[in-house]
């Protein structure tokens, strides 16, 4: 009890609160991880869809996941050679 009082008084936080916070972040981060296989499949599917509407440069097509502290973004970048008119 005294121990607890002192901790509060000195403004020290419980180590389990640190553990919980770290865990929550770790679990979120773990779930954002994507396997190479998934990325390759996604790459193929996106190219297929875009190709229905545009002539694109397949070699220059780029697919990336950009991560920062509080945000994860899927970035697709592709040069368009021409639009398909139908």
């Amino acid at each position: 009890m005294l121990n607890g009082f002192l901790k509060k008084f000195l403004g020290k936080s419980d180590s389990k609160d640190v553990a919980k916070k770290r865990l929550k972040f770790a679990l979120i981060y773990d779930k954002l991880e994507v396997s190479d296989e998934t990325l390759e499949n996604l790459h193929r599917d996106i190219v297929e869809v875009i190709s229905r509407y545009f002539e694109i440069d397949h070699d220059a097509f780029k697919l990336d996941i950009h991560r920062s502290d509080d945000l994860s973004a899927l970035v697709v970048n592709t040069p368009i050679l021409s639009a398909k008119h139908r």
Binding site: G4, D14, K16, L23
Partner: peptide
């Protein structure tokens, strides 16, 4: 757990 040095089951 009571000392705050172990995750409780609620956590």
């Amino acid at each position: 757990v009571e000392r705050g040095d172990m995750l409780s089951h609620e956590d």
